[in-house]
Deep mutational scan, measured.
Amino acid sequence: DVEPGKFYKGVVTRIEKYGAFINLNEQVRGLLRPRDMISLRAENLNVGDEIIVQAIDVRPEKREIDFKYIP
């Protein structure tokens, strides 16, 4: 289970104008929005990159997770 405030290692699987999709594993995926990329620009991300993200909002009923990148 993903808990708000905890840090996780994930892999960038898709990049859109509104953010990057980060997979923690095959069943868990969330969104890293540009406003939550402190000191990281979306254009510096590539599909396949491994990054550490913090879960900031977890909505299990919608199967949605928002992440924040903190260097």
Rank of each mutant, 00 (worst) to 15 (best):
G10Y: 01
S39T: 10
M37D: 04
G30N: 02
R41W: 12
D1W: 15
P60I: 11
V53Y: 01
Y8N: 00
L32Q: 02
R33H: 07
V47P: 05
D49S: 05
D49Y: 06
E50R: 12
D57H: 14
L45K: 05
G5I: 02
G5F: 05
I70P: 03
D66Q: 09
I70W: 13
I70Q: 09
L40D: 06
K9R: 13
I15N: 01
L32Y: 03
V11P: 00
P71H: 09
L40C: 11
R35G: 12
R35I: 11
I65Y: 08
K9C: 15
R29M: 14
R63Y: 11
Q54H: 04
N23K: 14
V53I: 07
P34G: 12
V12D: 00
F7H: 04
R59K: 06
K9V: 12
Y69K: 03
N23S: 15
E16P: 01
G10D: 01
P34V: 15
R63T: 07
I65W: 08
D66N: 07
Q27Y: 14
L24W: 02
E26C: 12
E16C: 12
L40G: 07
T13Q: 04
R35K: 14
V53C: 03
G30I: 12
E50Y: 15
E26D: 14
D49G: 02
K62E: 08
G10T: 01
Y8C: 03
I52D: 01
N46H: 15
I65N: 04
N23I: 10
L45P: 00
R29H: 10
R59G: 05
R35V: 11
L45N: 01
K62F: 09
L40Q: 05
M37C: 09
P4M: 12
D49H: 04
Q27F: 15
L24E: 01
V2G: 02
A20V: 15
G10C: 07
R63C: 13
N44F: 13
I56H: 05
L24Y: 01
L24P: 01
R63D: 09
E3R: 12
I52F: 08
L32H: 02
M37W: 06
I65R: 03
F67H: 03
V28H: 07
I15E: 00
V53R: 00
A20L: 12
Y69D: 04
I22G: 00
R33F: 05
D66H: 10
I70R: 06
L45A: 01
K68Y: 07
A42I: 15
R63F: 11
L31H: 04
Y69C: 07
D57I: 10
R35A: 12
P34K: 15
K17T: 11
N25T: 12
R41N: 11
G30H: 02
D49C: 07
M37R: 03
E3Y: 12
N44R: 10
G5L: 06
G19S: 04
Q27C: 13
L32R: 02
V2Q: 03
I15T: 03
I22D: 00
V53M: 07
K17Y: 12
R29S: 13
L24D: 01
D49K: 03
V12I: 15
I51V: 09
I51M: 03
V2R: 02
V58S: 06
N46T: 13
E26N: 13
D36R: 04
N44W: 14
R41I: 11
V12A: 00
Q27S: 14
I38C: 14
V12T: 01
D66V: 13
V2M: 05
F7D: 02
Q54F: 12
K6W: 05
I56M: 12
M37V: 07
Y69H: 06
I51L: 09
V47L: 10
E43P: 08
I52V: 13
I22N: 00
S39R: 13
P60Q: 08
E64H: 10
I51H: 00
A55S: 02
V12L: 04
E64K: 06
P71S: 14
R14I: 05
V28F: 08
A42H: 13
G48R: 01
R35W: 06
D66G: 06
L24A: 01
E50K: 11
I52C: 15
P60N: 08
L24N: 00
L32D: 02
V58F: 07
A42C: 13
T13V: 11
L24I: 14
R41Y: 10
V2W: 06
Q27V: 13
F7E: 03
K17F: 11
N46L: 10
K6T: 06
A55F: 08
K6E: 07
R63N: 14
E61K: 09
R59M: 04
I52N: 02
I38R: 10
E16S: 13
Y69P: 03
E26A: 15
Q54K: 08
I51K: 00
I56N: 02
R33D: 05
N23R: 12
R63P: 06
L31I: 10
P60M: 09
E3K: 14
P60A: 10
K9M: 08
P71E: 12
I70L: 11
R14E: 04
R14V: 06
V11H: 05
R35P: 06
G19K: 07
D49L: 08
L45Y: 04
Y18M: 07
